[in-house]
């Protein structure tokens, strides 16, 4: 595993907001998403919220020096508050909202039973140990009721938390995705070709070139 790097230095997909790659609808949708603050919470209660935030920090960890972290927990809360659904559930699972409440309560119960503290109070090592057990379906505290911890981890934790993070422009910058592209689209399609409005990747020793290119994506 390579460590996370600043692979697209200076790239900000939001620099393209007022250009030909964003239509009016896209601007409206992203404005709404970017207005979601880190403590915006409508669906979860206080106890669930602490657990969710700790959980999100383990599933999609963010650099400690990031000035404005992606509000992952708030994005998950937002999805549940507006009642957005996947469109299916395993026969052994309750619906999305109930699964989340039940799963977060159960994780907390497991933390207390195994480590004597609430989930968000545990060290990251202990949190990861519990998450690995959930991933394998080996958490079976009564608080899970009939919901398999494995499916909670796969469908809710991985599904909702990961999608929340990668719905945010900060995550798009990190991976060098071009972002919204209507109506302009793209022109250069071949290997190792980029349009001037796409992120430039830092090649070893040539980081300054990428940085300069990335400041121009909104031109």
């Amino acid at each position: 595993m390579l460590p996370r790097q600043d692979l697209y230095p200076g790239y900000d997909v939001l620099a393209k907001r007022d250009g030909p790659s964003w239509n009016a609808k896209t601007r409206a949708v992203l404005d709404e998403r970017l207005a979601i603050g880190p403590e915006m919470r409508r669906f979860f209660d206080e106890a669930e919220w602490m657990t969710l935030k700790a959980l999100a920090a383990r599933i999609v960890p963010q650099p400690a020096d990031r000035e404005v972290p992606v509000p992952v927990a708030a994005l998950v809360d937002y999805k549940l508050a507006i009642g957005e659904h996947d469109g299916y559930r395993d026969a052994t699972m309750p619906d999305e909202r109930e699964a989340w409440r039940q799963g977060l309560r159960a994780l907390d119960a497991e933390a207390r039973a195994q480590f004597g503290a609430r989930f968000h109070e545990l060290s990251t090592w202990a949190q990861d140990e519990l998450l690995k057990l959930a991933e394998r379906g080996e958490l079976t505290d009564a608080a899970w009721a009939s919901m398999p911890s494995k499916l909670f981890f796969k469908h809710r934790v991985l599904g909702d938390v990961v999608k929340a993070y990668y719905a945010h422009p900060t995550a798009w910058n990190e991976i060098g995705w071009g972002g919204p592209a209507s109506p302009r689209g793209y022109v250069r399609m071949d290997f190792d070709r980029r349009d001037p409005w796409e992120a430039a990747e830092a090649k070893p020793g040539r980081e300054d070139e990428a940085y300069a290119e990335n400041l121009r994506v909104g031109d």
């Binding site: 460590p3 996370r4 790097q5 999609v60 991985l158 990961v162 060098g176 995705w177």
Partner: peptide
């Protein structure tokens, strides 16, 4: 969900998206 990555392994792998 299909490759089983989360945590640092996921965010680092995602940087190879391009």
């Amino acid at each position: 969900s299909a490759h089983g990555l989360w945590g640092e392994a996921l965010v680092a792998e995602m940087q190879r998206y391009n």
